[in-house]
Design a binder for these strands. Structure first.
Length: 462
RNA sequence: GCACGGGUGGCAGAGCAGCUAUGCAAUGGACUGCAGAUCCAUGGACCCGGGUGCAAAUCCCGGCCCGUGCUCCA
């Protein structure tokens, strides 16, 4: 039994083997905070939160770094139009991000470095690349020269230099004017005096898009680390650019042991994007779905597969989530054991998670336990597996206080309900269905649902 | 065009050589004044064509179709 992780670079699941035994250094590309977080972000950071939790549950000491790209063209566009500092826009959206992630039980990373706090390290890295001949200074910035390390090209996407040359077509002219080759990419962009900028040996400017991740991972982890995560779309060019920058700077390779990429979110079968008008923020989704029900939905498909968030899919997840919480609550207040085979469920759960974090298969084990048993041992099992590992449960205190609230709400109406039910049973006995249904309607209007069973009626709050 | 990932029952979605996936929906039954809930049971699938195996959704070859990427993107 060993954890196997799919690595985009080698295109296979490999047994996890880390640089230091028992320790995992994990870097995940964070957000560019130019807008409120959307469902694609939810999928990505929920996936890596799950990875984080499973690694720790498996006994690893995890050092988890996730950056904020807090200076960028889109942030500047927004701050210009609002007439505020770029940091106002960035901080507002970072706060939004952390809030919605907290609501979905995402554990905090150990470090959230920002580009604007990493400028000296970025400048050092660019300087080294220039000194080593991997980068050159053009008239509008500093560029990495792909032809100095062509063997590193295509490690994550399988593309060759020729393919990208052919495929880029008309877009070539739009990219930096100082490039010698369109496949080269910017390390440092010289900017207009009116824009926020930092001094550098190449003039005032700001970092290119890819360099911050290389600089931050080098700063926090050193020359090599174990897991690098991010969205599927970042494989090229962003992550391939990181390989160039990091490995050419330090000379150590591979910079990353396992490249992990999560699949995309579709909405009703279409890729979620602003141009299609089906772009949804996490906050909007909270209007219709409990944060943890949303988490349930997003974890119920293996992280590498695309996921289509249709109303039916989200509705199913909400049903399962409610059942899970109910079973947990009932089990919490039980003082007898279920006598069911929980160790078999544990084994299958572990095997599923060890197989490249197959949360779908793991959740099925949770569903089976939820469906089949109630007991104090079930409460403990659910708390560990559905709660601590998958992060799908509110805390036991929250569940208990939720139950207590329901109890007190029940107690408030209990007397009235019981007397109405007595009256209704009398009506039913004399086959006065009109009167019986009238009383049931009255109870419904009080928010009480009546269910007739073999041993007489039972009721609960809607 | 090139690269990568896919095509599984009504729907969603695992499995990736042999053993009921699962959930929702459906059907039959129990219960039932009606409703609801619950319980039991049942049917139903692996894109097409070849190949290798005792055995193929699962491996190989060839098609067809879909998604994503190819310098905004998690």
């Amino acid at each position: 039994m060993a954890l196997r992780v799919y690595d985009t670079r080698s295109r296979e699941k490999r047994k996890l083997s880390t640089l230091d035994d028992g320790k995992v250094r994990m870097y995940v590309c964070g957000i560019t905070p130019y807008s409120p977080s959307h469902l694609g972000h939810a999928r990505c950071y929920l996936a890596f939160d799950m990875v984080h939790r499973w690694l720790e549950a498996s006994g690893y000491d995890v050092d988890y770094v996730q950056n904020f790209t807090d200076i960028d063209d889109k942030i500047l566009d927004i701050s210009d139009s609002e007439g505020v500092e770029y940091s106002v826009v960035a901080n507002r959206n970072i706060d939004d991000y952390l809030e919605v992630m907290d609501a979905m039980n995402v554990l905090r990373a150990d470090h959230y470095p920002r580009v604007t706090d990493t400028i000296p390290e970025i400048i050092d890295m660019v300087s080294t690349l220039v000194d080593k001949g991997h980068a050159y200074v053009g008239d509008d910035g500093v560029y990495f020269e792909i032809d100095t390390a062509p063997e590193k090209f295509g490690q994550l996407t399988g593309q060759t230099l020729e393919m990208v040359r052919a495929g880029a077509g008309g877009r070539v002219e739009d990219t930096g004017s100082g490039k010698r080759d369109h496949r080269d990419f910017a390390l440092w962009k010289r900017v207009k005096p009116s824009e926020p900028s930092w001094d550098s040996p190449w003039g005032a400017g700001r970092p290119g898009w890819h360099i911050e991740c290389s600089a931050m991972s080098l700063k926090h982890f050193g020359e090599q680390f174990d897991i690098h995560g991010g969205g599927h779309d970042l494989r090229f060019p962003h992550h391939e650019a990181e390989i160039f920058q990091s490995e050419c700077c330090t000379g150590s390779e591979p910079v990353v042991g396992y490249w992990m990429h999560n699949g995309f979110v579709n909405v009703n079968g279409e890729k979620m994007s602003k141009s299609l008008g089906n772009f949804r923020t996490i906050r909007d989704a909270f209007e219709h779905h409990a944060p943890l029900a949303l988490r349930y939905a997003l974890l119920s498909v293996p992280y590498r597969n695309p996921i289509d968030l249709t109303p039916e899919f989200l509705g199913d997840a909400a049903i399962h989530y409610d059942r899970l919480v109910e079973a947990y609550g009932t089990s919490l207040s039980s003082d007898t054991e279920s006598n069911s085979d929980l160790s078999g469920a544990s084994d299958r759960f572990t095997a599923a998670m060890d197989d490249d974090f197959n949360t779908r298969a793991a959740i099925i084990e949770v569903q089976k336990v939820v469906a089949s048993s109630i007991g104090s041992d079930v409460a403990i099992w659910l708390e560990e597996h559905a709660g601590n590992i998958l992060g799908l449960l509110p805390s036991s205190d929250e569940v208990r206080s939720g139950l207590a609230q329901i109890d007190s709400a029940r107690a408030e109406v209990a007397e009235r309900v019981e007397s109405l039910l007595v009256e209704r049973e009398a009506a039913r006995k004399s086959s006065d269905w009109g009167r019986a249904d009238e009383i049931r309607d009255e109870l419904v209007s009080m928010g009480v649902v009546v269910e007739d069973g073999q041993d007489g009626p039972t009721w609960h709050l809607a």
